[in-house]
Simulated assay, not measured.
Amino acid sequence: MSFPQLKVLIPTAPIRPYTPLGGQRSHVWFDRLQISPDVPEDLTTIDSMAQELSVLVNKEVEQGIPLNRIIVGGFSMGGAMAMHLAYRSLPQLCGVFALSSFLNHNSSVYEALQTKTTQEIPPLLMCHGDQDGLVSDEWGSQTANILRKLGVDVQFHIIKDAEHELTKRELLQLMDWINEKLPPLSELST
């Protein structure tokens, strides 16, 4: 991907015990009881991670990048974490992307969005493989539909014949979406 007008940061999730792996340590953004939208969220680990990621974003703001020129996103759990960060902590962001991601049915993101105006809600790009055996595309679709009802401008794309993976097709869609949301500053002044 080429984004000459952008600075791209790719943080790695910390190593922590992960309940779906029997408590084994793994690189995960937060813990969950199981990989399912039917369980409660572990807000303790989600909120602590949101604080750490907010510090990362705020360092960029301190270096002169306004929040409305910052997009957050991720793959799988990283996409869910990005939605928590944007819709609960940093609604002034330019946008959010979530690839092969979902939110739990009673997500605190949904609760937070009920109190916001559409001007305070960043747009969302979601892509999901139709053959994903770990995170059902139905879960992603349900998340997108609920977020739309709560005022989020959601683009949801099913990626045909894709599993729980990143594909060239969705990365090209992501690149186009980012370039649309964050055109070079020279294009903004013309």
Results as ranks from 00 to 15, higher is better:
residue 158 I to P: 00
residue 103 L to W: 04
residue 79 G to A: 12
residue 116 K to V: 01
residue 143 T to V: 11
residue 57 V to L: 00
residue 83 M to K: 10
residue 182 L to R: 10
residue 170 E to V: 01
residue 172 L to I: 12
residue 141 S to C: 13
residue 53 L to Q: 05
residue 135 V to L: 07
residue 77 M to T: 06
residue 109 V to G: 02
residue 128 H to K: 02
residue 159 I to T: 09
residue 112 A to Q: 06
residue 147 L to I: 04
residue 165 E to T: 11
residue 151 G to H: 00
residue 111 E to N: 14
residue 153 D to H: 09
residue 132 D to Q: 01
residue 112 A to R: 06
residue 57 V to K: 03
residue 131 Q to P: 00
residue 126 M to D: 05
residue 56 L to C: 03
residue 53 L to M: 13
residue 154 V to P: 02
residue 64 G to A: 04
residue 180 E to W: 05
residue 83 M to A: 13
residue 109 V to Q: 06
residue 103 L to H: 11
residue 183 P to W: 07
residue 107 S to F: 13
residue 159 I to C: 00
residue 144 A to S: 12
residue 130 D to E: 03
residue 174 L to D: 07
residue 124 L to Q: 08
residue 54 S to V: 06
residue 144 A to V: 09
residue 133 G to C: 01
residue 78 G to C: 07
residue 91 P to Q: 10
residue 173 Q to M: 09
residue 55 V to W: 03
residue 81 M to E: 10
residue 160 K to C: 04
residue 177 W to K: 11
residue 132 D to R: 01
residue 138 E to F: 14
residue 186 S to I: 13
residue 168 K to M: 03
residue 113 L to F: 11
residue 91 P to R: 06
residue 82 A to C: 06
residue 146 I to M: 15
residue 169 R to F: 10
residue 65 I to H: 05
residue 64 G to Y: 12
residue 149 K to E: 15
residue 170 E to Q: 15
residue 181 K to D: 12
residue 131 Q to A: 13
residue 135 V to T: 10
residue 109 V to I: 05
residue 54 S to R: 12
residue 157 H to F: 09
residue 119 Q to G: 00
residue 172 L to T: 15
residue 142 Q to P: 00
residue 117 T to P: 00
residue 143 T to G: 10
residue 89 S to Y: 11
residue 78 G to I: 07
residue 113 L to C: 11
residue 71 I to E: 07
residue 147 L to H: 06
residue 89 S to E: 11
residue 176 D to N: 13
residue 73 G to W: 09
residue 76 S to Y: 05
residue 135 V to N: 03
residue 87 Y to G: 06
residue 139 W to I: 02
residue 112 A to V: 07
residue 171 L to E: 09
residue 61 V to T: 11
residue 151 G to K: 01
residue 63 Q to Y: 00
residue 134 L to H: 01
residue 52 E to A: 15
residue 164 H to Y: 14
residue 153 D to I: 02
residue 82 A to V: 05
residue 116 K to E: 02
residue 133 G to T: 05
residue 137 D to Q: 07
residue 179 N to T: 03
residue 115 T to F: 14
residue 140 G to S: 07
residue 89 S to K: 11
residue 179 N to Y: 00
residue 174 L to R: 02
residue 87 Y to A: 04
